[in-house]
Computed example of a mutant assay.
Amino acid sequence: MRSRELVICGLNAVRSRFETASSTVKRLFFTLPIAPEIGDLCRWMAKERLVYRCVEPEELERISGSIHHGGVVVVVQPPEIRSPRLDEVRQWASSGLPLLILDRVSNVHNLGAIIRTAAFFGVTKLIIPDHPQAALPTEATYRVAEGGLDHVEVFCVDHLPGFLRAIRPYYFIVGAATRGGSPTKGRNQERPYAIVLGNEELGLDRDVMSACHELTTIPGSGFVESLNVSVTAAILLWELIRSPERPDTPRFPNGPISAR
């Protein structure tokens, strides 16, 4: 589940990577119009003796594999996606950390939007299953997440229903159902929440549903069957978690901080 290199596109995502994990940076490429906006990044690359280069838009499209590169890309060492240990999960729960769990969400853009939402609400642990239908983070995911993947750690489990049953003593598990669930009942004060979102077309697997403590359905007009899964994530995180606002911190007050 690990590739040798990953390409991150777009100014927000690129800056986020320099700010949070500069030790993973390998190469930086950009077009002439955006050069004045990344002088600090170029100075840091020069200081670290890493490759950075101004290129034509066509070459940047080739490097990034996308026309949606935003004028700047950074090539980085990708994170390893591993399985969480049960003792880790217990520690997360005792610290009050919520979990966001995806049951075979298959679209990499939806995955990116969900991760962006999770980062916005301060949810830093995301669980996905090792399943052919489940999307893994790609360059498109990083682009859509707008830097969110530098704040959200992604884990992968072999058997999602079994994982949910194992964490039931520590988390109150709420599954998002297209129909048949109850409206959210507010916050559970005894245990942190684990929110489970299903596949875009198929919803939650039956075994996954049976492992949840509660199923919830967001009421709507009925004009369309359901919300996009990333919108569902935003509503449920707002309703059930609403992490406290974090104080603003300046980005690159003296240039990016090196972790090398």
Rank of each mutant, 00 (worst) to 15 (best):
S64Q: 05
R179K: 12
R116Q: 04
V174C: 05
I81L: 06
S94Y: 00
F120A: 15
G71H: 02
V174Y: 03
P84N: 14
T124M: 14
D103M: 12
A93K: 02
E58A: 12
R168D: 05
V144E: 09
L136P: 01
E153H: 12
L160P: 05
V123L: 14
A135P: 01
A145V: 12
S66D: 06
P161R: 11
T178I: 15
P79S: 07
E146S: 15
E59F: 01
V174L: 07
L164E: 02
S64M: 04
D130K: 12
P84Y: 05
T117A: 15
L126E: 06
I167E: 03
K125W: 03
R143L: 10
A166Y: 06
A93N: 01
V72I: 15
F121I: 00
Y142W: 13
T124D: 15
C156I: 15
Y170M: 13
I67E: 14
R82D: 14
Q133C: 01
V154D: 09
K125L: 01
L164R: 02
Y170D: 14
F163I: 06
T138E: 10
V75Y: 07
V72R: 08
S106N: 12
P84V: 01
V76G: 11
I114D: 12
A177E: 08
F172P: 01
Y171I: 05
Y170W: 14
R90E: 13
V89D: 08
V154P: 10
N107W: 05
G175Q: 10
G175D: 09
T138G: 07
C156E: 00
V75C: 08
D150P: 05
L136V: 05
V72W: 02
H69I: 02
A177L: 09
S64G: 15
P169G: 04
V152G: 10
S95R: 15
Q133V: 00
G147K: 07
A118F: 04
V72L: 02
K125I: 03
V154W: 13
S182N: 02
E88V: 08
V89G: 09
P84C: 12
F155N: 04
I63R: 12
R165V: 10
L102R: 10
S182L: 11
S66C: 09
